[in-house]
Design a protein around this nucleic acid. Structure first.
Lengths: 337, 337
DNA sequence: ATGAAAGCGCTAACAC
DNA sequence: GTGTTAGCGCTTTCAT
């Protein structure tokens, strides 16, 4: 079938061991020999058989990205960042979809990964998820995007602070009746929304406002969910003057709900999101931007470092900073709040 | 290290060959034996070593997705569709980024794929791309999304027809001065935009309009590009009354340009896109919808069929249909055209 | 600096 | 139905 190392060895007049060394840039190969090997390999259009190499060495030369929702902006953007790094490092990138409630996996994630990747990047999965726990206990090097787990390389924003920023922005504009659209009910294993809710409450408390349970709606972090949640808020007898959405996508849904009601964001009701989704600029949505693609890149770099493939990245892992991007969707309340 | 097939064999009191057969569901294994093997494997938490299996069998059990822009909606959505299928089929999914002009790959795509995947899905890459040509000649089973190539399983929309639909919609509303925002210059190897330009011209010709070169702008299929292109169109001494954007993302950019100019889509200028991007509903953009996720699923299913892993999909490969979704961004011209 | 040879863990003939 | 065995194509000691 394909060209094997033996044919290259013969063509170069050396042993297979030498070919192996030469091709991988190992030391103790004469320069002249290496050149001859390289030439022979190129000549024969030889490519190392990954399975053979993996079997013999025990390393797979690939890393896996584990994520629940491939098509959503946050995830695909992280993925893109990761891909840049793995590509440059000559590693294979394995994509593992998990946790879609509609298509539960028979096989536990840890097993789906075993022997297939040297390390994994876990994107926006709660650390308390049993699958994630299992992964962390499987002594597979792991890097996490979107939440902070002790003793594991992580990259995430400070969710509470981002939420505080967003809420404070609304407060500064004079809003006092500020609703929040969260993912699912508060008190879940999804730390992201828990922290963001905390930040929201913190900000309110600085001006002496008690969080009002009727001003909390749930949008599942989807556009449709955000729309639905906004409808509920609009049906309140005492409508909020501003809404803090825990993600831009939910804010997009909220803005649709507003339009259907004939209301305009930034005029009738203020709207703010978190993400820095490219579309936020399109609808002129104020948001708290996070550097998603670099987070993916950084997670990958950290993982490579753990694997000993590269020197550790310059920045220390951990929290990356966010930036408030004020736009037209937030303004002072019409009647002074 | 890990549990091997031999340990399972010993635990079950059979040979490794029998374990191999039993675990893969091959025939000629006694039911009782199979059960014993399964139990032993489960007991020992055994997982087949993919490298060993691949090396011995010659099959990799993985398929690759080859794509230029992972983070863009169209690509990540196709990817998500593909992932659903590979996941269900128990195949590994390899992600190969290619053709990013900023990070040219040293290694040709065909080599990056060799021995690593049993088949590949090529997304929105021009068939005339040398890399793609090489892939097609490498007798690696391939399935293509986004363009039609003879003798290869493909799934795509009829680009010319979609463009015709979009343009006809504008014509029906009474527009006569209709601009188009294309990707790059007409006459490239990107068949998608060529076909869409054709459809645009066809539609115009039905009402006796000659395409006007000054009404063609280029947006590189990005939001920023669309914005820039729209700015150029707005600077024309004789502005168009409607603009057909070859993608929703470019239409998003165009809508930003409009807003900055104080113009409103659907009032001052009509705007139509192609894609059915989820955000099109958010900004109330008329569009021609294509079933992107199912296209991904379908491409994957076709590929599995070619690989003999599944019976061929029911629908025949080829063109899938599009649907005009009229929304607020298109309306009759203010002054009857 | 290079070669010989022993696996790595599985699959696939083939024999029984 | 099941076992034996010879590889698959590399990497990696260990010699030299």
């Amino acid at each position: 079938m394909a060209v094997t190392i033996r044919e290259v060895a013969e063509a170069a007049g050396v042993s297979t061991a030498t070919v192996s060394r030469a091709l991988r840039g190992l030391p103790y190969v004469d320069d002249a020999t290496r050149l001859r090997v390289l030439a022979a390999a190129a000549n024969l259009d030889y490519v190392v058989s990954p399975s053979a190499s993996r079997l013999a060495s025990g390393r797979t030369g690939s890393i896996a990205v584990v994520t629940p929702f491939i098509a959503r902006w946050f995830f695909s953007t992280v993925l893109s960042g990761v891909e840049q790094v793995t590509h440059d490092a000559g590693l294979d990138l394995l994509l593992l979809g998990v946790g879609d409630p509609d298509r539960p996996s028979e096989v536990p994630t840890e097993q789906r990964l075993r022997q297939r990747a040297d390390g994994a990047i876990i994107v926006a999965l709660p650390a308390d998820d049993p699958e994630v726990r299992a992964l962390l206990n499987a002594n597979l090097p792991v890097s996490i995007v979107g939440s902070l787990v002790p003793d594991v390389p992580c990259v995430a924003i400070d969710d509470a602070e981002a939420a505080r920023k967003a809420t404070a922005h609304l407060l500064n504009l004079g809003h006092r009746r500020i609703a929040v659209i969260s993912g699912s009910r508060i008190g879940s294993i999804y730390t992201t929304q828990e922290h963001r809710y905390r930040g929201y409450c913190d900000a309110l408390s600085t001006v002496g406002i008690e969080p009002d349970p009727t001003l909390v709606a749930f949008g599942q972090f989807t556009r449709e969910g955000g729309e639905q949640a906004m409808v509920e808020l609009l049906n309140l007898t005492l409508m909020p003057t501003a809404v803090f959405c825990m993600s831009d996508e939910m804010a997009f849904g909220a803005s649709v709900a507003l339009r259907r009601r004939g209301l305009v964001a930034g005029v009738d009701i203020s709207l703010i999101g978190i993400d820095g989704h490219p579309q936020s600029e399109v609808i002129d949505l104020t948001t708290v931007e996070q550097p998603v693609e670099s987070m993916g890149r950084f997670a990958a770099e950290s993982l490579l470092a753990v694997l000993g493939l590269t020197p550790p990245p310059e920045r220390a892992p951990g929290l990356v900073s966010t930036r408030l991007v004020p736009r037209g969707s937030t303004a002072s309340p019409r009647d002074g709040g």
